[in-house]
Design a binder for these strands. Structure first.
Lengths: 132, 132
DNA sequence: AACATTATGTAATAATATAACATTTAGAAG
DNA sequence: CTTCTAAATGTTATATTATTACATAATGTT
């Protein structure tokens, strides 16, 4: 069960925007979109983003400097994320594949490192873009 | 076998610096370090980095905006990369694990996407930092 | 030699992200 | 319900990362 976090005003505005967009959004595009709601400075956006990432409501797509709403309701915190990214249309979706997440969460090598988190990004062409 | 690319002057200067550093380096830190060799502008650095990434001599650590020399001589191009990152000391190493790379290269789901590339970043504490 | 491709040089600027400081709000503890 | 603390907000300035645009030079190919 996902713990219910009471989002603050700015956090809620920004989460709702990203969630409704259905895809990845960049920080300054978020800023532009929430200025009418009184959020005027980059830092206000980044602070909300940081918190939303921390509690697992959104994830950062590192290769794109963009943020997407978590599409996996069972994901309490962002400690094991996997995405598929179309290099043509830039569509992003979160992969929820139990076998994959188990495999990666249990991965260990001989480095002596204990892995507590991972992020995986797959790249390719989506169905639509392939057939063009 | 890795194809021998004849690196240009700037590419060679920048690759040698990253390679000798033994770890990840950031673009503007690279710039600072090569100014005495006549490379004066960010763009000169980014152009060399782009090319070096393209031919697989270096990889970008997306979560850190940093670049590291490829530690895997059989890696011709950067299409399948995995790294372990210590969140305390920021040490990064490239993981070369045949089982892992096979598993990920062959991964497919029901999205209809054909994955041609992936990047995986594991986070945790390295041996040294764990014992502190 | 002519051409195409790749690399370089330079200046300006765009895009992404954080530091520092003051104030306010929301919860928890008494 | 008041005192305390942690979290969130507001604001300005600035740091960091990366690209656009345009001119020139070097390299490789036919």
């Amino acid at each position: 069960m996902q713990k219910e976090h009471n989002l603050s005003k700015n956090q809620k505005i920004i989460f709702d925007l990203i969630d409704k967009s259905g895809g990845p959004m960049k920080a300054y595009s978020i800023l532009f979109n929430v200025q009418k709601k009184g959020i005027k400075a980059p830092l206000q956006v980044y602070r909300a983003l940081d918190k939303l990432v921390e509690i697992g409501k959104i994830h950062k797509i590192e290769s794109r400097n963009a943020f997407i709403a978590c599409q996996n309701s069972s994901c309490q915190v962002s400690k094991a994320t996997a995405f598929s990214i179309c290099e043509s249309c830039e569509n992003v979706s979160e992969i929820s594949n139990l076998k994959l997440s188990k495999y990666l969460s249990n991965f260990s090598d001989n480095s002596g490192m204990k892995y507590s988190k991972y992020n995986l990004e797959f790249f390719g062409l989506c169905k639509k873009c392939k057939s063009k």
